[in-house]
Design a protein around this nucleic acid. Sequence first.
DNA 1: TCCATAGTTCAGAAATTCGGAACTGTTGAT
DNA 2: ATCAACAGTTCCGAATTTCTGAACTATGGA
Lengths: 114, 114
Amino acid sequence: MRPLFHPAIEDLKPEAILSALSDRERVAIFAQIAGLGSSGTCTALSNLGGRVIPKSSLSQHMKVLREAGLIRGERHGVEMRNHSRCQEVDARFPGLIAAILGAYGRPQEEANAG
Amino acid sequence: MRPLFHPAIEDLKPEAILSALSDRERVAIFAQIAGLGSSGTCTALSNLGGRVIPKSSLSQHMKVLREAGLIRGERHGVEMRNHSRCQEVDARFPGLIAAILGAYGRPQEEANAG
DNA sequence: TCCATAGTTCAGAAATTCGGAACTGTTGAT
DNA sequence: ATCAACAGTTCCGAATTTCTGAACTATGGA
C-alpha cells in the first residue's frame, strides 16, 4: 500500500494534537502505542478499556492520531504497525505530551522516548 | 445573578481541558484572560483574532472554558469579569497549561500565576 | 418607568462523529 | 490462477455537536 499521509514535523498543529487527545479512547490507544515503544496493531488495540472498539471507529481514531502527527503507521504484510512520534512532537512542542499523559494519570515512561 | 457553575478542582477532567483548548478562538480568549491576570469581559474579548465573534458564540466559548475549569466568571454590575484558574489547574495538572500555551506559541507569562 | 448595556438561551442549519456493511489490499493454500 | 482468510479502510445513514441570529434576562442609570 502507498504510504499513509503523515504530516511533517513543522506542519504539526497544536489544535489537532489537543483535539486528538481530548478523547479518552484515543488517549488510551496513544498511550499504549507510546508505552509499547513500537508496533501496536489495530486489532491489538481494539480492546483497551474493557470495551471492544468497532474497527471502523478504531480506523478513524488511528487516522486522527496519524494526521495529528502523534503516530506513524507502516504496513508490514497484512498488518499495520503503529509507533509513536513522541520524540519528534516533543522536539516541536516541549513537554506537551508528557503533561497531557501526566494529566490523564499515566506514568508516561515512554512519552519522550517512543 | 446566581453564581455560574464552576467545577471543583478535583472534578477537573483532562479531556474537557484539552477539548476546550483545541479551538484557536478559545485559546486566544483564554490566553488573553490569563495574560491580563484578571477581568476579561466578553465584549473586550470579542475581537481578538481579527474576527468579530458573535456574542452567542462567545457566550458558548466562555461556558466551555468555565465548565472545563479554566476560568472563573463573576458578575460585577452589568458585566461579567472573567479570570483564569491557572494556579488551581496547574496544581492539579502540573505543567499542562504552560505546555499547551507554549505549543500555541504564546509567551504564557501568566500561565502559572493567573 | 423606560432605555441601554452585557450576556444567556433558544432553535434551526451546518458540520462532525459513530459504527455496521461493503470494500481493498496482502498472504497463504490449493 | 483461484480461493479463502485476515487487517484495515471507506461508505453512508443516524445521532450528536457546533454555530449563530433572534429573542430573552438581568443590571444600572436617567
